[in-house]
């Protein structure tokens, strides 16, 4: 069971309290109804599924109930960092070579 740092609770908490919510930083269009089929496909269906660093959404479901973002390495399954929902993608990742 992983330990995940909740940026709102400001501490690491057991994975059982959390739920993954898919890839992060996929913005919903402000003009949703006007999106082209291609753009909607990209928005709704296409995910990066990388080997390595992924930005993803988690919810501290059984804790503070907040959604937040995390940077995780899909190879090592290690969390690099977490940050609050709405904050930009971190430009620098601690301990990760660019």
């Amino acid at each position: 069971m992983l330990l995940i740092r909740c940026p709102y609770c400001e501490e690491e908490r057991p994975e059982l309290e959390f739920r993954n919510a898919g890839e992060a930083h996929i913005a919903r269009s402000a003009n949703m109804a006007g999106e082209s089929d291609d753009d909607f496909e990209k928005f709704f269906f296409i995910r990066s599924n990388p080997k390595g660093i992924i930005h993803e959404r988690w919810r501290h479901m059984h804790g503070c109930a907040r959604f937040f973002n995390a940077v995780r390495d899909t190879v090592t399954d290690k969390f690099i960092m977490t940050y609050k929902a709405g904050e930009p993608k971190p430009s620098k990742l601690p301990g990760v070579a660019k």
Binding site: H62, G63, C64, A65
Partner: peptide, 10 residues
């Protein structure tokens, strides 16, 4: 205090 898990429930 904290919301958390006990067995299979919150």
């Amino acid at each position: 205090c904290s919301r958390t898990i006990l067995g299979k429930t919150e």
